[in-house]
Design a protein around this nucleic acid. Structure first.
Length: 645
DNA sequence: GTTTCGGTTCTTTTT
DNA sequence: GAACCGAAAC
């Protein structure tokens, strides 16, 4: 294979990082400076140098990032990259735990609980302790506290105290529910997202022999978005890299936007201290944006207390200055964007060159309505995650139970679909089965049937038939087939009777069936379903995404992406920055989020600040423009006033 | 005692 | 939407 021409494809900064010698390396890569490119070429360089791809580990935060980099690297060095371990921290931990979790007392067919499962389980725990209702936090709130405690290696009590402060909540109860939750996860043979990381680290800490095998195996470890690692992930990586010390991390402390889930940018700031022999590279040359946009980005981040000093240097020629637009309210904002988008279309922009970004999903509501009304197609990274939708979880429940007979959540979900059968009946039968449902066992199947209400028995017969086939035809190697048969034998009819919008859901199911065909292992399919909760953002495989449509996305999900034109909406104090974050002292992070948003734009950036917002009770409320716009020196912005002030 | 149905309320960010 | 609550229906 012909060698890669590094001097042509990379600038000097990038080339230095790509060709860095062995040993620890820190690459500080500001927005739009070719971070992905650098990482990709580094992988290609290693492979070209003769490093076996199977002995390279590439860690990312999203599946999309991993896939993108591997595809690009494949473009450079061909099949040399196959076998490379690439994926999210959660995926890699899962991959190792599937092999070794028995050392931690789990069975290898453990279930991964997604957010929805975890919520249900916490609710059940609080219910059992008779804490539901009156002055007690909702399951989601409890979960976020537990999660933060796990990701910071902090006692739950401390995390709860920090979160609830002096609210009249009994912290003892919060801790009690947590203890129950842990027990229940154990008896279900299940791990939630945090358990994957925590147990992944535990495996390394408590089993040096297992750790040593992986230390020996991985010659090179690369970490993307290092500023978003939490202490568990950082320690996990440090331990894994301790033998070879070929650890290259890339990140930008300005773009650290996940502290609410435990990320700690002190990991990246402290890297040179932890690795005194580390080589440090800085990428500051920005190819993406016109200078006017970078001026705004630099100005806004200057308001944050200092981190790694860096300034974005533009190479592009002058373009249009970013525009500050004020309008009356959300409807006016929606029509403004649509009008501008149409005008941009006439100027030669494609719709897919344009993105609308916002702080929270519900900020896009009016715009969605207006786009739908005018029949303008758009693509949204939706709030409801594909695999967490009720109908998707429904059709996966049987497979889940087949794989892990201790999965009570799947059992209750499955039985709950039968007529005259609800949570109570399901729970009673679960008790009678002694918390375990071996569907393959005909005797068990009969016991369940006898306990079911008459009306549910016909449905049960269909299910048992699939289970028999699962055994006989070895369907664990063809998990998609189980889902397919479940839909045909039972669920389709159920869905028609149950859902108002059957057609839409059926489309999802068809897409799911299509997606599952490539899997040859039930465990793998279920793990991916749990870990790829946001399918549209991560893979375009499932829904046929039209390519030339307007993109709507949260800022978080837009990270790492770019568009020629970006509209940033609802720049009103309280919306962006969100009032909740401000109350919790998160202004620095909100500002970084704003920085991430502005640096997504290549040619044009519109900062939209409506003056009125609707309140819950149907009234309106005056809002101040976001402090982040006010902080930008006014000569850096063009101004359009469509409001009334 | 349970399931089912029909109202009302509320949305930060994600693996 | 979908989660929650209360009331009707089985």
């Amino acid at each position: 294979m012909a060698g890669i021409n590094f001097s042509e494809a990379l600038n000097e900064e990038q080339r230095a990082a790509v060709l860095a010698p062995d040993g620890p390396v820190l690459v500080i890569a500001a927005a739009g400076t070719g971070k992905t490119r650098t990482l990709t070429f580094r992988v290609a360089h290693l492979v070209e140098r003769g490093v076996d791809a199977q002995r390279i580990l590439l860690l990312t935060f999203t599946n999309r990032a991993a896939r993108e980099m591997l595809e690009r690297a494949r473009g450079l060095v061909g099949e040399g990259v196959s076998g490379l371990w690439g994926g999210t921290f959660h995926h890699m931990a899962n991959r190792m735990l599937r092999r070794h979790c028995e050392a931690l007392g789990y069975k290898t067919d453990y279930t991964i609980l997604d957010q929805d499962d975890a919520r249900n389980l916490v609710r059940a725990c609080a219910d059992e302790l008779d804490l539901l209702g009156k002055h007690f936090p909702k399951p989601d709130v409890l979960l976020s506290v537990y999660s933060l405690a796990a990701n910071r290696e902090q006692p739950v009590e401390a995390a709860a105290e920090a979160h609830f402060g002096h609210h009249p909540i009994d912290l003892k109860d919060v801790v009690k529910v947590h203890a129950r939750y842990r027990e229940r996860k154990r008896s279900l043979n299940a791990m939630d997202f945090d358990d994957l990381l925590v147990n992944g680290l535990l495996l390394f800490r408590e089993h040096p022999d297992i750790l040593a095998r992986y230390q020996e195996h991985f010659l090179h470890i690369l970490v993307d978005e290092y500023q978003d690692t939490n202490c568990i992930q950082a320690e996990w990586v440090d331990r894994l890299a301790a033998r070879r010390r070929n650890l290259l991390v890339v990140g930008d402390d300005f773009q650290s936007i996940y502290s609410w889930r435990g990320a700690d940018f002190r990991n990246i700031l402290g890297f040179p201290k932890r690795y005194p022999d580390a080589t440090v590279f800085k990428l500051e040359t920005n190819y993406r944006s016109v200078p006017g946009i970078l001026d705004v980005a630099n100005a806004c981040i200057a308001g944050n207390p200092e981190q790694f000093q860096k300034t974005l240097r533009a190479v592009r020629e002058d373009g249009r200055r970013p525009v500050r637009v004020e309008m009356r309210g959300g409807e006016e904002q929606a029509s403004y964007i649509i009008e501008r988008a149409m005008a941009l279309g006439r100027e030669g922009y494609r719709m897919s060159d344009i993105a609308v970004l916002y702080r929270a999903h519900y900020h896009a509501l009016e715009l969605q309505l207006e786009l739908a009304r005018q029949h303008i197609p758009f693509d949204i990274t939706s709030g409801v995650r594909f695999f967490e939708q009720a109908h998707i979880k429904d059709v996966c429940s049987l497979l889940r139970l087949l794989v892990n007979p201790s999965d009570e959540l799947a059992f209750v979900r499955l039985l709950g679909m039968f007529p005259k059968t609800g949570p109570r009946t399901a729970a009673r039968i679960w008790e009678l089965l002694d918390h375990r449902c071996e569907l393959k066992d005909a005797a068990v199947a009969d016991r369940v049937r006898d306990k079911l209400p008459q009306a549910a028995r016909a449905s049960w017969k269909d299910i048992v038939e699939i289970c028999r086939a699962y055994e006989k035809e070895k369907l664990s190697g063809d998990p998609g087939e189980v889902i397919y048969r479940f839909i045909n034998a039972f669920y389709d009819e159920y869905a028609v009777e149950t859902f108002e919008n059957y057609d839409r859901r059926r489309e999802d199911l068809d897409a799911l069936i299509d997606f599952t065909t490539k899997y040859t292992s039930a465990e793998e399919l279920l793990a991916d379903a749990a870990l790829m909760s946001n399918l549209d953002a991560e893979t375009d495989e499932i829904r046929g995404t039209d390519d030339n449509v307007l993109k709507l996305s949260t800022v978080h999900q837009a990270k790492g992406l770019e568009w020629r034109v970006v509209f940033l909406i609802w720049l009103a104090d309280g919306m962006f920055p969100s009032s909740r974050s401000i109350n919790e002292g998160g202004e620095g992070e909100e500002r970084r989020l704003f920085y991430v948003a502005t640096t997504r734009a290549r040619d044009q950036l519109y900062l939209c600040a409506p003056q009125l917002r609707r309140t819950r009770d149907g009234g309106v409320m005056l809002c101040q423009p976001s402090r982040f716009i006010e902080e930008v020196p006014s000569d850096l912005l063009e101004r359009e006033d469509l409001g009334f002030m």
